[in-house]
Each structure stands twice: as structure tokens, then as C-alpha cells.
Design a protein around this nucleic acid. Sequence first.
DNA 1: CGGATTGTTGAGGATACTCAAGTTAGGTGG
DNA 2: CCACCTAACTTGAGTATCCTCAACAATCCG
Lengths: 236, 236
Amino acid sequence: MNTGFDRTSTRSFEIFSALSDSQFDNVIATAAHRHVKAGEAVFEQGGEAKSFFVLVSGRLRVTQVTAEGQQVIVRIVVPGDLFGIAKALQRNDYPGTATALVDSALLAWPTARWSGFMAAYPSMAVGAMQTMGDRLQEAHSRLREMATEEVERRVAHTVLRLGNQSGRKEAAGVRIDFPVSKQDIAELSGTTLHTVSRILTAWEAAGLVQGGRQKLLLKNPHRLLLIGDGLVPGLL
Amino acid sequence: MNTGFDRTSTRSFEIFSALSDSQFDNVIATAAHRHVKAGEAVFEQGGEAKSFFVLVSGRLRVTQVTAEGQQVIVRIVVPGDLFGIAKALQRNDYPGTATALVDSALLAWPTARWSGFMAAYPSMAVGAMQTMGDRLQEAHSRLREMATEEVERRVAHTVLRLGNQSGRKEAAGVRIDFPVSKQDIAELSGTTLHTVSRILTAWEAAGLVQGGRQKLLLKNPHRLLLIGDGLVPGLL
DNA sequence: CGGATTGTTGAGGATACTCAAGTTAGGTGG
DNA sequence: CCACCTAACTTGAGTATCCTCAACAATCCG
């Protein structure tokens, strides 16, 4: 049976790439191996940050809820990603909730180990910094989009980003290889599921995408990019 | 004459706090000292990232422009902040433009030194990570606000954030101690200067703030927070 | 098969944007 | 020191975008 833990693929994660084999073995040996089923939470917003994690297989969604109960998706976690690093943010609680979108496997270390890890394995510190740098750039891109672009363009950028982070090339186009609901796309784009539905319906009619319940196939990423960048008018 | 460089205050910056005196002296000795006048740019978006910086005195505004020429303010840099760390973002160019809002003094090191610094002074690596963590949280807050809040609430959060980052307590309230235009507030809030003007006019009539050309005094931060959090209806 | 979750589509309306015109403040040079 | 010029700001009117509300349809799962 496939447990989701595969040494070879884990070894290839960028964050471990600069470690020697023996260092890697040490790091893995001190990790707890956890499985989460689709729909289950790895940690909850506001909960005490006991561990930090690396996703080995599966997909997670990290969300934040506002005081009024509105939800925003902070990001989608893909294999190889470091997450739940509250310590690096100077926090004792998790700022968001991480939910498995599909059955997932992950490695966990006690938060108390964070500083020791960074000191003992500088290459992991560099990797952690890169992770944070990537997220910062993504957050800034989304901010720029939210501040300046109309909904259709934001949705185009959102689905393209999903395709880049977690797409699988098929003959017909790029398949988003985990269940994405319209609600998810809305929370990533800063709009409502109604508006997303209308936009995707229009795109589907024009042959740009092919939808379905929690499914999405980008049939014409190039044209979507043109829409996202405002180089061609949208379809609404 | 005051050059803007003051050893005592520089020494007290969080990022240097864990260095020994001799380490601190070494770090400072290898830095170039630069002055920028109000309105001048420290670096431009897309320019080669030759240096990274610490702001010693003054205020900077970091912006990104979209392909269509729309501008978004990424953040306001205050003394003690590390900025221009393209290397940590895995880039060779600067992702934004840093402009001095008032006459400013800064320390600069060649980008090539970045990795060496992180290795030689782990406490600076930790500091850099904290810096990125703070920014990431701020970016997520703004993202959440842009996605879920109406304009008036976003503007309230924006001016409160400015007050926290760069406010000076006065008898009458919290003064934003650098020139902020309505356009700046608009670019931080994701709206237009027209809307900001209308909102601030209404707030001023209610005694919440006192405006002026590139001036802002928060007379009732508590009430602004209630508006920002949606606990009391806005004034528009 | 039935219940629940997810998605579709329409109508109406509010928020905030665009366009437009004018006012105020501040700096600059004569 | 005053006049002018520009940048910052104000205010109004009209309107587009997109949200809310609502009802219904499709799909999935047990």
C-alpha cells in the first residue's frame, strides 16, 4: 500500500536539497509522520503552534476567517512546501487553518525545534527564507491584482496561478489536479462564487476552459493570460 | 549638522540587537552611507539589485507599477527596516521602486554580501526572517481586507496601520509624521483618491481625524478601529 | 433513493468608479 | 513680498461593475 511517504521524492524537495544524505536522514528521523484525510484540518486558526510541517503528498488549503466569518484563502500548499511556521512569524498560534483538500501525508516537527534546525542546517534556513520570499511575492501580486484589476482579470490570474502551482499537462490543456470549487476560486480572487460561476460559464462557451463540479481544465492558458493582463477584452 | 546617522539609535535597531559590539562595528564598517532627498528614488523597479539596505532615518515608500501604469504601494519603510533584499526573494532585479518621502539616510551593502552576512551573523538571518514574516502578515491582512471589506473600512485600517508604523502621539491624537497624500492612502487601500477624499471629509466633520495637504492626525483612533472592524456603521 | 453539497441563472440595486470642473495650498521666481 | 504656477485636494453627476437576494438544477455520496 502507498503510505504517501516516498523517500526518493521527499529527498528531492528543494528545502532538503542542500543537505547531505546523513543530515537528511537525521532530519527525517526526528519527524513525526502524519496522514490527514480529505476535509480534515492539520491545524486551526488560533490554535497553539505545536509543530511546523512539510507536505509530502496531497494538497492543503490555508484559510483565514475574519471576525465576521468571511473566509479568504491564503494559499494552496503543494508537496515540498514548508507550512505552519508560526515561529518564523514570531507567533505562538497559527494565523490560519490548514485543511486537506485530498488525502495528504506530511512530516511534522515540534515548533521548539525550529531555531535549532535553522542553526544546525543553514541551508534549510536559506530554503525557509526562499519559501517566505516566494509567498511574499505571491501576496504582493495578489494585492496588486485586487487593487487594480476587475474581477474577470483577477479570476484569470487566479486560475493560471493554480495551473502553475498545481497543474498537470494533458493533451487538452492544463488540468488543476485537485478539487477546486467555485467558492475556492472566489476566495482566492476576492469575489463571490456567483461571479466566478458566470465568468467560467462564459469562458467555457468560448472554449477557454472546461469546468465541472470541483473540476477545472485550462484549455487555452495563453488566451487566459491575455485576458488577465488586459490585453484582450474579457467575455463579460 | 545632523547627518542622519546616529550610532546609538542605529545600534538599537532590532536587526542589529543580537550582534556583539565588535560585530556591529564590522557590519557598519562595510556599509556605504547614503543620503536621499525627499522625492528621490533609492532604486527603481526592474533595476539590477546591486545593494540591500537598512533605513537609518527618514521614510520611504515602496511601490509597484502594473503594466498599465497603475500604482500600488507595497509598504512604507521606517528606520530600522531592512529593504531591497532582492536576494532573499531569489531575484536579480528590484521588484519595486523605493522613493524617499522625506530626506533619508541609509546604509547599503553589496547584494553579493547577502549570503555571507546570513552565514556570519545568524542573528541577522533571524532578524531578516522576522522582517519577512512581519511583511507577510501585513500583506495577508491587506489581502483579507481587500477581499472582504468595503472601502471605508479599508481606509480606516490603512490609516490606523500608518499610525502604528509611523505615528507620533500628540495631545490631540496620533500624528502621521511624514507627508501622506490622499493618493498614497488610496494606493494603500486599493481605491481612488476621490473616494479617500470623500471619506476623510466625512470623518473630519465627525471629529475623527484632522486632515490637510499631505497631513493627517488621527483624533479618535478607537472609533476608527470600530469602523474598520465593522462594529459601528461608517459615515458614508 | 434521498439528502446535502455544489453550481447556475436572473433581477435589482448599492457601492464606488469615471469624468469633469473648480478650489486651495505651497513653493518659486521676479 | 507678492504673483503666479503647479500639485494636491474637493465636490458633483452619471453610471458600470459586481454584489445581494432568490429560486432552482445538477451532482455526489451514503
